[in-house]
Simulated assay, not measured.
Amino acid sequence: MSENKQKRQKRDLSGWLVFSKPYDMSSTEAVGKLRWLYGAKKAGHAGTLDPLATGILPIAFGEATKTVPHVQDGTKVYQFDIAWGAQTTTDDMEGEVMETSEHRPDRSSLEAVLPRFTGTITQVPPAFSAIRIGGERAYDLARAGEKLDMPPREVEIDGIDILSHGPDRTRLSVTCAKGTYVRALARDIALALGTRGHVGALHRAQVGRFSDENAISLAEIETVEGAARDALLLPVAAGLFDLPEIRVDDRQAATIRLGNPVLLAGRDAPVSLDEAWASCRGQAVALGMVEHGQFKPRRVILSSA
């Protein structure tokens, strides 16, 4: 009994887990399960993934939670099926069928319409979404039977590719920015083709630099323990992709971790940066900015040593 209690003792653990979320598990459940498996004091995720969706759910432990906003802002890649012929209340397979159509688009018609859904486009989010309306979640209001007037929003879509096409289902890959609703995209593509459709399957293949290539399944995590399980984690710095890195020495790192700015020396030292992160010996020290040649910390990241 004492050994079991010792295994479950909460510990200071920091790093990123590129988790491959299975079907029918909510993002909240995933965080709870992984926090328990790792015995971590603190954990969170970078971007909700629907229970019926699979794929990349970045899990942050400890100090990595301070880098969550940056990971959430990373480019996303989704692979999804449009199930042709029916529009549902939720724009996925969970909802009730609202309208049907016998029309099935051919591949050339689909290829012709997809450019209309790239670049900056306007979407009306699904009624069953987490958007707040009057302080309440839209999905709570929708479940209560309220008719919702969902506010349109602009989103950025870099590109859409056809992976496979058939009479009943088409599989697409979309590269997009934060805030894009794939369910709304499937619905609107179908409407543009003169038919109806909903998401029949959804997989998130990438969030920033976290992708299927370095994703870890629940089975893989559960089959190892101790140091081998910890070795599956990426460092806190892995969540700071695409931000300028400012390398500092031990003395400067100690100053920054006290919340104080440091002067950056050297011919190539930046004078001004809106966003940057400081590192020392490969470890993240702080998120911050560079102003007048000084690195100024906004969020200090404690040493994992």
Rank of each mutant, 00 (worst) to 15 (best):
V271H: 12
L263P: 04
A219L: 11
T67R: 05
E3K: 10
D50M: 07
L233W: 04
S173H: 02
A83Y: 02
L37W: 05
S211M: 04
L110Y: 07
L273R: 15
T67S: 15
Y78M: 11
A231C: 08
R281E: 06
L302Q: 13
K66F: 02
G39Q: 07
L233H: 07
D268H: 04
H165A: 14
P69S: 11
D242F: 04
D24N: 15
A192S: 13
T28M: 09
E111Y: 07
A30R: 07
A284K: 08
D158I: 00
Q206K: 03
G259C: 05
R143Y: 02
G95L: 07
R251V: 15
R281M: 04
L193S: 13
Q87R: 14
L240E: 13
L17Q: 09
R116C: 06
S2H: 10
K5Y: 09
P270C: 13
Y23T: 06
D249T: 08
V174E: 02
G95Q: 10
R229Y: 05
E220R: 15
A205R: 12
D250S: 14
L110Q: 09
E3P: 03
W277A: 03
L202F: 13
L240S: 11
Y181K: 10
L114G: 11
V182G: 13
V77K: 02
A142C: 10
G159K: 10
F19V: 00
D274T: 10
Y181T: 15
G95P: 03
R104N: 10
A192M: 06
R247M: 08
A269C: 05
S129M: 07
A276H: 12
N4V: 14
A265D: 13
E3L: 14
K33F: 08
V207D: 13
I133N: 01
P235I: 05
L114Y: 07
A276S: 12
L232Q: 13
R298L: 13
G259L: 03
V97T: 14
D158Y: 08
A305I: 02
M289C: 09
G226Y: 10
K42W: 04
G166P: 15
G159W: 00
K21S: 13
D249R: 03
D249L: 02
R299H: 14
S109G: 15
L172V: 04
V174L: 06
V285P: 03
I157C: 06
Q123M: 09
S173F: 03
T120P: 00
V71Q: 11
V71K: 11
R187F: 00
R153T: 00
P115Q: 07
D250M: 09
R35L: 04
L141Q: 09
D242I: 07
T118H: 01
R257N: 09
D268E: 10
S14K: 14
